[in-house]
Structures are given as structure tokens and as C-alpha cells.
Design a protein around this nucleic acid. Structure first.
Lengths: 208, 208
DNA sequence: TGAGTGGTGTTCAAACTTGACTACCGAGTT
DNA sequence: AACTCGGTAGTCAAGTTTGAACACCACTCA
């Protein structure tokens, strides 16, 4: 129980960005997330990023690795993953991809790092998620049919249920299709020769 | 600018629950939200409810209206809406139903209080939302076609875009259909004779 | 009788998010 | 030369959420 139980999108994104860079300071992480579009779909604000970094440092997921060489402006502290940081990353990534009730941003973060793991594992996690989603959809549908909303006072709250069902169906088919694509060999996953996006040191090898 | 700019689902739900009750203490609000299923789809925890009450009190949206008569246990402070509370409720409700980029829980809270306003107004707000959703969908689609993700590093992040598009389509058709149902006279809205769910004093008239 | 269980009603600390703000630097421009 | 503008890098206070804990009561059930 030493620390990381929180499952927020920010945590995963920040951890993953540091991991992909190998070693990074706050602003680098921020730019990285920006370039992935993460500031739009999750809405990760600068403040949250710096907070997450301090937090991850404090709980031993990150260690500080000196300050940047070039220039002498404000302290640009560099961070890198520790071993428990790596474990936490794997834990969060698994949760994000497998938990049917995870929030969309968290799932989104999971997808971002989809290729940081072996293909088999990714498919397994997504299958788990699919099963969960289908279970949820089933129970929503049977509620609608039985007319058994918990203490169904307001008639029009059915609307809400209908909307969850529609959204859920979309999630199910999306997950199903993604699994299929992965099984047909889409994308370069971790350990498949090519440089998989987000892998450790990906920034250094694939980019400048 | 006096106070309420935050647009959280909790705020709207708590305000609406007090409004519907006419006068309520924390636990009543909590039970009310529970009975609407709000603790599931939004995930409103007790702590947040009490916090929201204190906050709304502090900023003048609620006033305290004595303590409950029966029993003498802990202080069961009663709250009721002030005029600016009423304004805030309308403001939040409008935002929740009209803003295309509102979070799902916030929209859900809006739907819960859908019938607290005249039919025309509800339809207008939802139409506005529909337009926003369609605009968003359009720009997402053109991004996919142009291949112009902001700085499209990771190939598989397209997956994410695909998933937003699918979810967005679902939201569009849901909103469209809801508007249609409303135009065909579904549900009893505020000011239409029958007791509309969630209206002021609804708890006292429609329930015990 | 006393041991647990479940509901009522609330508080609290710790974590997290948010938006605004600071401060510096270099490029252009008026 | 002074001025603005945008990018870099980060802090801060205020608000919000979360999970757990507290305290008290009524009930059962052995």
C-alpha cells in the first residue's frame, strides 16, 4: 500500500511522459502532453502537471536527476523514473485499459501509451474491459426493460439511462474493433523491433 | 463576478435538491441524490455534498433556515435558496444543457432538472448544445481526413480520435431525439399545470 | 447482555485541480 | 530606446474531491 492508489489521468500521463523522455523537467512534460493533444481531451493544466511531478517525487515514483545544463535561469529540475515508478506506470496503464468504469480521460491516457506494452498484454487488457462494458450494458438494458430505476422518481431520468446506453454501445464497438486491429498486427508494440511510441527512451531514439 | 463561476455537477445537483425540497439539511440532500441515482453516474460523495452546502451558504446562494424540529441529535441545519441561489440554479442549468463541451456528469445533472423550466427554454438550450456538438464533430472529422492531429507524433492516437467521434455521434443523435420528444409534448415541464419534477416545492407537493 | 450491524448525520485531512499570476528572455517594431 | 509580444518555466491561493473516520441511535440475534 505504499503510496500510489490514485488512478488519475494526469498521473498516468505525467509518468508516461517522463518515462518516454527518459529524463525531463516540468515544461518538457507539459510540451509533450500538449503535442499529444492531451491538454484538450483530458484537460491537464500546467498546475496539475507540476503538482503531479512533486507528488510522484515525494512518493518515490520519480527521482530528481540534477538540473539541466544549458542556461542558468530558474531551476529546471530533471526527473526520471525509479523502479517503483515503472511499476506504477504498468499498474496505471493496466487499470486504464482494462477497467470498464474508468473515466474517459483515464482511458484516453491508456490508449496514448497503448504501444508501451507487448501486443498480447494490450489485447488481454482490452478484452477484460470489453467484458466489463458488456456486463454494464446488460444491466443497464435490463433496468430499462424492468422499469426498475433505483427509486425511479423522475420519469425523464430514463433519458439519462438511454444516453448512457448509447454511449456504452459506442464504447463497446470501439473496443471490439480496436482489439481486432491489434490482432491483425496494427501498430508497432513494445518489444517488436521498431521503436514503439512512448517506450523508454523513445524520445531520444525516435526524435532529436 | 460575485462568486459562482464554477460549473460542477455537484453544485448544480445540490442546489437543485435543496430547491426541490424547499428546505433541507445535508443528509436529506444526500438521500435525494442517492434516490436519483446521482451517486452512481455523477459520483457525488457525502463529503462533496457537505462542502457544496457550506460553500453555497458562504457565497450567499443558500441561507440557513433554522434547525430541524424533531429530535436533538447533531445540528441538522436546514438550508433554503436565496434569490441569487435561484439565479445560480438557472445559470448552471442553462450551462449544463447548452454547453457542448460540458462533462457528462454535468450534462446528466442538467437532464435531471430538465423539467424545472418551460418547454421552449429547454428545447432552445438543447438546440444550442446540438449545434455545438455538430461543430465539434465536424472539426474532429476534418482533422481525421486532413491527417492533421496537432503535432501527430503517435500513430495510434488516431484511435482516440476515432473513439471521440463515435461517442460524439451518439451524443448528437441522443440530443436530436430528445429535442424531438420534447417538441412532441413528452414530460410535464415547469408551468404546465401538473407538478413538474424538481420544481420548487416539488418534494412537498408530489411526495409526503 | 453484549456484540454486532446498519442507518443517520457530519467532520476532517490530504490530495488534487484550477486559473491567475510572476518573471525572465529574445525578437521585432515603432 | 522603449514597448510590446510570445515563448519558456514555474508558483500560488482558493476551491474541490475523496476516503475515512466519528458519534450516536435502533435493532437483532444469540
Amino acid at each position: 500500500m505504499h503510496g500510489g492508489v490514485a488512478m488519475s489521468a494526469t498521473r498516468l500521463l505525467v509518468l508516461g511522459a517522463v518515462r518516454a523522455s527518459g529524463r525531463a523537467h516540468g515544461y518538457q512534460v507539459r510540451r509533450e502532453l500538449l503535442s499529444w493533444g492531451a491538454e484538450q481531451w483530458a484537460s491537464v493544466k500546467p498546475g496539475s502537471i507540476y503538482h503531479a511531478l512533486r507528488q510522484l517525487l515525494k512518493s518515490g515514483m520519480l527521482r530528481s536527476a540534477g538540473v539541466e545544463e544549458s542556461g542558468e535561469g530558474p531551476e529546471r529540475t530533471l526527473f526520471e523514473l525509479t523502479e517503483s515508478g515503472e511499476e506504477e506506470f504498468v499498474r496505471l496503464l493496466s487499470k486504464a485499459l482494462s477497467d470498464a468504469s474508468a473515466k474517459p480521460e483515464f482511458f484516453g491516457a491508456g490508449i496514448t501509451f497503448l504501444t508501451c506494452q507487448p501486443r498480447e498484454r494490450a489485447v488481454g487488457l482490452l478484452r477484460f474491459r470489453l467484458a466489463g462494458l458488456e456486463r454494464e450494458q446488460g444491466s443497464l438494458r435490463s433496468m430499462l426493460e424492468d422499469g426498475a430505476v433505483p427509486a425511479a422518481k423522475p420519469e425523464h431520468v430514463w433519458e439519462l439511462f438511454r444516453s448512457w446506453i448509447v454511449a456504452g454501445d459506442a464504447a463497446v464497438s470501439f473496443t471490439r474493433e480496436l482489439i481486432e486491429r491489434l490482432e491483425n498486427g496494427a501498430y508497432t508494440m513494445a518489444g517488436e523491433g521498431g521503436a514503439a511510441f512512448g517506450e523508454r527512451g523513445w524520445m531520444s531514439s525516435a526524435q532529436g
